[in-house]
Structure formats: C-alpha cells, structure tokens
C-alpha cells in the first residue's frame, strides 16, 4: 500500500515536472469542508467539484483534493470538522459554510495555522478568508425588477425565505427588500420559510396562504418555487408568477405551464459549479497570485427564451450548472481586482 502511494506520488511529481506552470502548487493539498449534501444543488456542487478537482490532481496541478461533508446542517459539526482539517495539515480549505459568523473562530484558527481559507456560496465574514459568491443582493433586486417589467401595476408579493442565519438568506432578503423599496407599487404581504426545499416550502406556504389576499407574484430563493406552486394548487388558488431557482423540477413545471397556458417567469441562482471556481481560486492563492478577498461572479439565469435549452442541458432532478476552468478563474480574479 505504502509502495503504491509512493509510486503514485512519484508519478504525480513526474507529471508536474512537465507542467511547469503548476509547479508551485504540485505538492499542495486542498480540502473541501461542506455542511450539507441532501439536496440537488449540493449534489451537483459536489459532483462538479469531484470532476474538476480529480482532473486537476491527475494533471498534477495539485497533490491531493479531499471532500468532507457533514450530514447535518449544524454549525458545531462543521467547526469541529475544520479543526480536524487543520490538524491534518491541508494547505487550503475550501468551505461552504453553515453560518457567516459562527465559524469565524475555526476559520481564524486555520488562517493562524497558515492555511488558505476560501469560502464560497455560504461565505464566512472572518477577514482572513476569501469569499467567492454571486451577488445575491443583486439577485434579490433583479427578481423584483423583472416583476416590475411584468406587472407595471404592481401587486402583492409573497416572499419565501431560505435557511435562517446563512449569508445567502440575509443577502437575498435584503436585495428583495431593496427592490421593493425601488418599486413601491409592490408590497410584501407574507413570508414563509422554505429552507430551499420543495416540501418544506409547500408546508410553510400552506400555513400562510389562507390568511393572504390575492398574490401577484412570489419571490423565492431557489428550490422552493415548485413547492409554492403545489401549495397554491392544493388551496385551489390561481398560480401567480413564481420566480424559480434553476432546479430541473422547477424548469420542467415551468415548461409544462408554458405549453399549457403561456406561463412566463424568470429563474436565477448561483451555479453549483461555483465550487470549482473556489477550487481554482484556492489554487491561484497557493500559487502566490494576488487575489482580492471578495470574488463575485454573475449568477446563472434562465428566461422564457432560454428555458428549452436550459431544461435540455439539466439532468432530471438536478439543477442548471456551469463548471469553471482555471482560465475562467484567472479572468474572474482580474475582473474583481
């Protein structure tokens, strides 16, 4: 066994000699700390990560990439996991964090141990860490802007919230609030917590729906739009414009409605493949590149025109995706400098 590992290491070392550009990081080990794997977005995120990082290891760009996922969504579990990764001596830890603040202690400990910490999607606020994300605030604003174009008269909005305490939920909520402030013809008349899960969203919307007046549109966070539609169906109410979050089931439902009655909406969220962007950014930092602490990339959106194409490219039950290459990561870094 030891011999095999030695041979593999030797092989990796030999390969890396041929790709001199990667020599700086050829001996580096990178870990992914992920706090949840139970939905289609996270699964696509992990698959993209595996695909891109295994190739990077095979190419000798880095020595090893390991994935660590905790089964629950809890902060203490992930904090303990990060402490373990520090002890295991990784050169960089890429994190999708359960909380923007509560992991700061563990993240600081990692930085103090000389480890590069790159957070993405669920980012951390600790200043020593890098943050790779889409502009969720703008995504929230864009939802209301789209609705303003569709419904010049305005109307009542129902807002579905995500996992409480995450940076994503906070920013989307603030973005939506800002959008409504800019478009005062809209009023948010109700809020339900869907936790980015169709069943949870359906239940939450069902509890609040009977008390609501007519709803013109639903602003969402992704993974909850289809559940909201089901709740409206169960209550026997007309289905409003529901902003979607690029999930295949949402897109398929949208297509179905589009064919049946010309239903139109807009869909946008962060591509799960952003994990691969975070990977390349960690690699670039290890390579000694100057990388700004905040790297923001555009979110992935689907419109009525691109619906068919996006649906065809998304696996059944999955989520619309985009994986990043090293060149795209370098470009993203330059764009943010």
């Amino acid at each position: 066994m030891k011999r095999t590992i030695f041979l593999l290491a030797l092989a990796a070392a030999t390969t890396s000699l041929t790709t001199i550009a990667h020599a700086q990081t050829a001996d580096k080990r990178i870990a992914l700390s992920n706090n949840y794997a139970g939905n289609s977005w996270r699964q696509a995120m992990l698959q993209s990560w595996d695909k891109v990082t295994q190739q990077a290891v095979a190419d000798g760009t880095v020595a090893a990439v390991d994935t660590f996922t905790t089964a629950d969504q809890e902060v203490p579990t992930q904090a303990a996991q990060i402490q373990n990764l520090i002890l295991q001596g990784y050169d960089a830890i890429v994190i999708n964090a359960a909380s923007p603040d509560a992991l700061n202690g563990a993240v600081k400990a990692a930085c103090d141990a000389g480890i590069v910490v790159v957070s993405f999607d669920g980012v951390v606020s600790e200043p020593c860490a890098w943050r790779v994300a889409v502009d969720y605030f703008a995504l929230g604003q864009e939802q209301v802007e789209y609705l303003a174009g569709r419904l010049p008269e305005g109307g009542n909005l129902l807002e579905i919230r995500g996992l409480a305490g995450t940076s994503i939920d906070n920013l989307l909520h603030e973005g939506i609030a800002a959008g409504v402030a800019d478009n005062p013809q809209f009023t948010i008349v109700g809020e339900a917590t869907g936790n980015w899960d169709q069943a949870t969203a359906q239940r939450a919307v069902s509890t609040v729906l009977p008390s609501l007046p007519e709803i013109a549109a639903i602003v969402t966070q992704g993974g909850d739009g289809y559940g909201a539609a089901q709740a409206f169906r169960a209550a026997g109410r007309d289905i409003p414009i529901i902003i979607m979050g690029n999930r295949q089931d949402e897109l398929a439902w949208w297509k179905e409605q589009q064919d049946a009655n010309g239903y139109e909406t807009w869909s946008g969220t962060i591509a799960p493949g952003i994990s691969t962007l975070a990977f390349w950014i960690a690699q670039q930092i290890l390579d000694g590149k100057d990388v700004p602490k905040d790297v923001t990339v555009p979110y992935l959106s689907v419109t009525n025109e691109t619906l068919e194409e996006a649906l065809a490219a998304t696996p059944v039950g999955g989520v619309a995706n985009k994986e990043y290459t090293q060149a795209e990561a370098i470009q993203a870094i330059e764009d943010n400098l």
């Binding site: 939905n39 899960d197 169709q198 069943a199 949870t200 289809y226 539609a229 089901q230 169960a234 089931d249």
Partner: peptide, 16 residues
C-alpha cells in the same frame, strides 16, 4: 405520500 404531495423527494424533507 409526502413526495407525491410535494412534487418530489428530498432528503431533508423529513427533518421537521
């Protein structure tokens, strides 16, 4: 039944 009612299964849907 819950999966049929809410339009699909998800691992986290039993959480509550």
């Amino acid at each position: 039944l819950l999966a049929a009612f809410s339009g699909g299964s998800s691992l986290s849907m039993g959480k509550e």
